[in-house]
Lab assay of single mutants.
Amino acid sequence: NSLAEAKVLANRELDKYGVSDYYKNLINNAKTVEGVKALIDEILA
């Protein structure tokens, strides 16, 4: 998966839960796919 794909999928996942734009910005600023995954795990914990 590319970083861009990971960000799109992460933001879709956040949308399902009604997560605020603050967290979407964190996702969009992530530098690695692993970073995106770690943020998602933390946000949805």
Score class of each variant (00 low, 15 high):
18 G>Q: 07
28 N>P: 01
29 N>Q: 13
43 I>E: 00
31 K>C: 04
37 K>V: 06
43 I>P: 00
27 I>P: 00
2 S>W: 11
27 I>N: 00
22 Y>C: 11
32 T>A: 02
33 V>K: 04
31 K>E: 12
14 L>H: 01
44 L>F: 07
37 K>H: 10
2 S>H: 09
10 A>Q: 01
36 V>L: 12
1 N>W: 15
8 V>W: 14
23 Y>L: 04
19 V>S: 05
2 S>E: 13
45 A>Y: 14
12 R>L: 13
3 L>D: 01
34 E>V: 04
43 I>F: 12
16 K>E: 05
6 A>I: 11
12 R>E: 10
22 Y>H: 10
42 E>F: 14
44 L>G: 03
17 Y>D: 02
16 K>N: 07
37 K>N: 08
9 L>T: 07
4 A>N: 08
9 L>Y: 07
10 A>W: 04
31 K>T: 15
12 R>P: 01
30 A>S: 06
27 I>W: 01
37 K>A: 08
30 A>P: 00
8 V>M: 15
4 A>D: 12
36 V>P: 00
30 A>C: 06
18 G>Y: 06
15 D>L: 11
17 Y>H: 12
3 L>V: 04
23 Y>N: 03
24 K>W: 06
10 A>Y: 03
4 A>T: 10
25 N>M: 13
19 V>P: 06
17 Y>P: 01
4 A>Q: 12
28 N>D: 09
38 A>M: 12
4 A>L: 08
41 D>V: 14
28 N>L: 11
30 A>F: 02
30 A>H: 02
17 Y>R: 10
29 N>M: 12
31 K>G: 08
39 L>A: 04
2 S>A: 13
18 G>K: 09
32 T>W: 01
6 A>F: 09
39 L>S: 01
40 I>A: 07
14 L>K: 01
15 D>Q: 10
28 N>I: 07
38 A>S: 09
34 E>G: 06
45 A>Q: 12
6 A>N: 03
10 A>N: 01
41 D>R: 15
10 A>P: 00
14 L>T: 02
34 E>D: 08
24 K>C: 03
30 A>K: 03
22 Y>K: 09
41 D>H: 09
36 V>Y: 01
36 V>G: 00
31 K>L: 13
43 I>T: 02
35 G>Y: 11
3 L>K: 00
28 N>F: 11
21 D>M: 13
3 L>C: 03
35 G>M: 15
36 V>R: 00
15 D>A: 14
2 S>D: 13
34 E>Q: 09
13 E>V: 15
31 K>F: 10
3 L>W: 01
19 V>W: 09
31 K>Q: 14
12 R>V: 09
40 I>F: 14
13 E>P: 01
16 K>A: 08
39 L>R: 02
11 N>E: 07
9 L>F: 08
11 N>A: 10
15 D>C: 06
20 S>A: 11
23 Y>C: 05
11 N>S: 10
21 D>H: 10
18 G>A: 06
44 L>P: 01
22 Y>D: 05
6 A>S: 06
8 V>A: 14
4 A>H: 12
2 S>G: 11
12 R>S: 08
18 G>E: 06
43 I>S: 02
13 E>M: 15
37 K>I: 10
33 V>Q: 04
26 L>R: 09
9 L>N: 12
12 R>I: 14
15 D>E: 12
17 Y>N: 05
8 V>Q: 13
28 N>M: 12
30 A>R: 03
27 I>M: 03
44 L>Q: 05
4 A>M: 09
35 G>P: 00
41 D>S: 11
13 E>W: 14
26 L>C: 05
20 S>W: 10
39 L>C: 03
45 A>T: 10
42 E>M: 15
23 Y>A: 04
7 K>S: 01
15 D>S: 12
37 K>D: 03
11 N>K: 11
18 G>M: 08
43 I>M: 05
18 G>P: 05
38 A>D: 07
28 N>E: 11
16 K>G: 05
28 N>A: 11
14 L>W: 02
5 E>I: 14
39 L>W: 03
44 L>Y: 05
43 I>C: 03
7 K>R: 04
1 N>M: 14
41 D>E: 13
16 K>T: 06
6 A>M: 12
40 I>G: 01
28 N>Q: 10
23 Y>K: 02
2 S>P: 12
5 E>Y: 13
26 L>M: 09
3 L>S: 01
23 Y>R: 02
29 N>T: 09
12 R>W: 12
38 A>L: 11
5 E>D: 10
44 L>M: 11
19 V>Q: 06
13 E>I: 15
1 N>S: 11
17 Y>A: 09
8 V>P: 00
15 D>W: 08
2 S>F: 09
20 S>C: 08
2 S>R: 11
22 Y>S: 04
45 A>C: 09
33 V>E: 04
7 K>H: 02
10 A>R: 01
29 N>K: 10
4 A>S: 11
21 D>K: 13
10 A>V: 02
23 Y>I: 03
14 L>D: 00
39 L>D: 00
19 V>T: 06
1 N>T: 13
7 K>Y: 02
6 A>R: 03
5 E>K: 10
5 E>N: 10
19 V>L: 13
29 N>P: 00
36 V>F: 03
43 I>N: 00
35 G>Q: 14
6 A>K: 03
5 E>W: 14
3 L>M: 02
6 A>Q: 06
31 K>V: 12
34 E>W: 09
30 A>D: 01
23 Y>M: 06
14 L>F: 04
4 A>E: 10
20 S>N: 08
18 G>T: 06
21 D>F: 11
30 A>L: 05
33 V>T: 04
5 E>M: 14
42 E>H: 14
3 L>N: 00
7 K>P: 00
31 K>R: 09
41 D>L: 15
33 V>M: 08
32 T>C: 03
32 T>G: 02
18 G>I: 07
31 K>W: 09
20 S>L: 07
44 L>W: 06
32 T>Y: 02
35 G>S: 11
16 K>V: 05
14 L>N: 02
20 S>G: 11
28 N>H: 08
19 V>M: 15
44 L>C: 03
1 N>H: 12
37 K>Y: 15
42 E>L: 13
30 A>E: 07
15 D>R: 09
9 L>S: 08
6 A>T: 06
42 E>V: 12
32 T>H: 03
10 A>G: 04
19 V>C: 11
12 R>Q: 13
9 L>P: 00
41 D>N: 13
15 D>G: 08
14 L>I: 08
16 K>C: 04
3 L>P: 01
9 L>M: 13
24 K>N: 03
14 L>Y: 02
15 D>M: 13
23 Y>D: 03
21 D>C: 13
34 E>S: 07
29 N>D: 11
20 S>T: 10
45 A>M: 12
40 I>E: 02
33 V>L: 11
43 I>G: 03
29 N>W: 07
4 A>W: 15
33 V>I: 15
20 S>P: 11
8 V>D: 11
19 V>A: 09
6 A>E: 04
15 D>I: 09
25 N>V: 08
44 L>I: 10
35 G>L: 13
24 K>P: 01
8 V>R: 15
16 K>Q: 07
42 E>A: 13
2 S>Y: 09
43 I>Q: 01
4 A>V: 08
29 N>R: 09
2 S>T: 12
16 K>I: 06
24 K>H: 05
26 L>N: 02
6 A>G: 02
24 K>E: 03
14 L>C: 04
27 I>Y: 01
14 L>M: 08
8 V>L: 14
27 I>L: 06
6 A>W: 15
17 Y>K: 05
39 L>Y: 04
27 I>A: 01
17 Y>F: 09
22 Y>A: 08
2 S>I: 09
39 L>I: 13
42 E>C: 14
9 L>G: 04
43 I>L: 07
21 D>S: 14
23 Y>P: 00
25 N>E: 13
37 K>L: 13
19 V>K: 06
20 S>Y: 05
17 Y>W: 14
8 V>S: 12
26 L>K: 09
33 V>G: 02
32 T>R: 02
18 G>N: 10
45 A>H: 09
19 V>I: 14
22 Y>T: 07
24 K>T: 05
41 D>M: 15
18 G>C: 06
16 K>F: 07
14 L>G: 03
29 N>S: 12
27 I>E: 00
36 V>N: 00
36 V>C: 01
15 D>H: 08
16 K>D: 04
31 K>A: 12
19 V>H: 07
32 T>M: 01
10 A>T: 01
40 I>P: 00
36 V>E: 00
45 A>F: 13
26 L>D: 02
21 D>W: 15
7 K>G: 00
25 N>L: 12
11 N>Y: 15
43 I>A: 09
44 L>R: 13
1 N>L: 15
20 S>D: 08
1 N>Y: 15
30 A>Y: 02
24 K>I: 06
10 A>M: 02
2 S>M: 10
13 E>D: 04
26 L>P: 01
33 V>W: 08
7 K>W: 02
9 L>Q: 10
18 G>H: 10
16 K>M: 07
9 L>E: 08
38 A>H: 07
41 D>I: 15
4 A>C: 06
35 G>C: 09
23 Y>F: 11
44 L>N: 04
16 K>S: 05
34 E>A: 12
40 I>K: 09
1 N>V: 14
34 E>I: 05
34 E>F: 07
1 N>F: 15
3 L>F: 02
39 L>E: 00
14 L>R: 01
26 L>F: 05
29 N>Y: 04
45 A>V: 08
45 A>W: 14
42 E>N: 10
25 N>C: 09
9 L>D: 07
21 D>T: 12
41 D>F: 13
22 Y>E: 08
32 T>V: 01
24 K>D: 01
33 V>R: 04
40 I>S: 03
39 L>G: 01
12 R>T: 07
8 V>I: 14
